[in-house]
Design a protein around this nucleic acid. Sequence first.
DNA 1: GTCCTGTTTTGTCCAGGACAAAAAGGGAGG
DNA 2: CCTCCCTTTTTGTCCTGGACAAAACAGGAC
Lengths: 301, 301
Amino acid sequence: MNTTASSPALSTIGAVERETGLLKDTLRVWERRYGFPAPIRDEAGERLYPRDQVDRLRLICRLMDQGWRPGKLLALPADELDALIAADRTRRAPTLLSGELVAALRAHDVEALRRGFQAALLEKGLKGLITDLIAPLNVDIGEAWLRGELGVPDEHFYTEQLQTFLRGALASYPRPGRPPRVLLTTLPEEEHGLGLLMAEVMLSAEGAHCCSLGPRMPVTDIVRAAQTASADVVALSFSAAFPARQALDGLRTLRATLPPSIELWVGGAGAPARLREEPGIRLMRDIGELPDTVSDWRSRH
Amino acid sequence: MNTTASSPALSTIGAVERETGLLKDTLRVWERRYGFPAPIRDEAGERLYPRDQVDRLRLICRLMDQGWRPGKLLALPADELDALIAADRTRRAPTLLSGELVAALRAHDVEALRRGFQAALLEKGLKGLITDLIAPLNVDIGEAWLRGELGVPDEHFYTEQLQTFLRGALASYPRPGRPPRVLLTTLPEEEHGLGLLMAEVMLSAEGAHCCSLGPRMPVTDIVRAAQTASADVVALSFSAAFPARQALDGLRTLRATLPPSIELWVGGAGAPARLREEPGIRLMRDIGELPDTVSDWRSRH
DNA sequence: GTCCTGTTTTGTCCAGGACAAAAAGGGAGG
DNA sequence: CCTCCCTTTTTGTCCTGGACAAAACAGGAC
C-alpha cells in the first residue's frame, strides 16, 4: 500500500486551501476556536498540515455538505467522526448503481462504460438515456462518493467518459436547429458543466438551436452574448452544492439586465426552489421537463 | 440596487480574488505598497472594489503574464497603462486568425465554426487538424484575447465547440486501443482540459489505449489510478499560466511516487523547460511529437 | 556568451480582534 | 400541527501591520 510520499506528507496553509476549498482564514479560525486542525509549525512558525489532518478535513467537508455543522464535527474525536461516516454509509442504500457499473468505474474500464451507455441509447433513445439512466445515475454516483465507495479518480473518469459520449451524440446531430435559439451557461461560481451538457443534448434532440458557452460566465457577458447570438432563451444550470442565496441574487440581476423578450430557464439540483414565484424565470425541477418546455415555447411563438 | 450580484459595480475582496486569481493578501499588500488598487470602504471599513479598478487589475494581470513586473505596472498612472496595452496590441500581429474565423467566434456562429473544423479534418486528417490548425489557433486566440479583440464569451464558445468536435471524433474511434495504455490528467491546480483532450485525440489516432481523468487530479490519486488501470504511461498537460515552480515540484513528487516502470510524459505551453534534464520524465515541446513518442515506446516494448 | 553572487522585489504567512450573514432555537398565532 | 417572526448562537470573512522566504534581477568573474 502506497501511503508514503504521495501528495507531500506536509502541506502549507495555501496548499490546504487549494486542496479542500476551505479558506485560509477559516482554517486559522477553526484552529483557534475548536483546536482542530492542529498543524505543526516549521522553523519560521508557519503552519504545516500533516496529511492525515488534511484527510480528516476532507471527511469533515463531506459531512458538512450533508448538513452537519462544523462546530459539532470539529469538537468530535477522530474515532467518533469515523463512526459518523460509517453510520452515514449504511444509512444510504445504493439504488440504481449496479455492481457491474461500480466495478467498471473502479477499474477505469473505458469499454464497459461505453457499452453500457450505448446499450441504453439503443434501448431508450437519447432523451430516455438521459432522463432514465444518466440523471439518476449522477445522483447515485454522488451518493456513492459520499459513502466513500468511489474515489476522486473514479468520479472524474465517469465524468470524462460521459462527456465524450454525450458530445459524440451532439456532434452527430443534424444542424442547424430551429427555434428557439438557446444560450446555455452557468454563473461564474458554478464550475460544473455536466448538467449543462445534458441539457444541451436534450435540447438538440428537440431540434432546438443550441449555443453553449460552457460554465463560469459573468452576468454582463451572458447578457451581451445572448444579444449577439440573438438568443430566444438563456438556460442556466446549478449543481447541488451551489449556495441558494448567491443563485437567487445572480438570477435576479440577470433577469433585470436581460431584455424581457429573452426567456430565462433554470434547472439543476442547486436551483433554488423559491424561484417558483420569481417572475420571468422558468424553473425546471427535472431535466425531463425540458422537451415540454420547448414545445410550450414553440406553441407560444 | 444589487449589492451581492455576480458582476456588480462594487466587489468585496473575496469576489475580486475569485475573479482575478490574485490572493486577498496580494491585493492588500499592493494597496499598502503601491497605493493601487485603492478600494473604497463600506460602513464596516471593508474594502469595496469599483468595477473599473477590477478591470484595471485584469489588465495588469495580462501584462504580468507577458513578463512585466507588478512594481512597474502598479506605479504607472492609468493612461500609461492603457498606452502599454495599446503598444502591445500593435506589437503582436495576428498570424493565422482569419477575419472570417474571428467573425464566426464573435457572432457565436456554431455552424461556421463546425464547417471550418470539418473542412480541415477532411483536408488534413485528424492529426494534421490538431497540429496544423488547432494548436496554432489556440495560441492565436489566446493572443487575440490579450489584445482585447475577443471577449470571455467568445473564448468560452470556441472552447465548447472545439470540445464537442474533438470528443465527437473521439467517440467515433475504434476501440479498444492497443498498448501503450495512457492515463491522461493534470495536476490539481491546472483546470484547463483542452490540451489534454487534444493529446487524447492524438494518442487515439495512434491507436493507443487512452483513459482520461480530466483535469485537477491530486498526485496520490494519479498514482493509484495509474496502478488500477495498469497504465504504461501517465501523461500530464500544463497551460501557459501554470507556475513553473509548482509544476516542477508536483512532477518530482509524482515521479518519485510512481512505479519506475510507468513512464511520465509532459506537454503543454506551461511545461517547464528545465524538465529536459529531469530523469524519468519525457518532455514534449510540441504536441506533434506525440506520435513519434508513441512509436518510440512501442519499439522499446 | 555562461555561471555565480549579492540585492531588490514580490508573494505568502502570522496573530488576534471584529463583525455580519446564516442557522438554530423559541414562542405566538393561524 | 404547521408557519411566521424574533432572538441568540454559530460560523465565515475581513481587518491591521509586521515578518520573511522565494523569485527575479543586476553585476562581476570566468
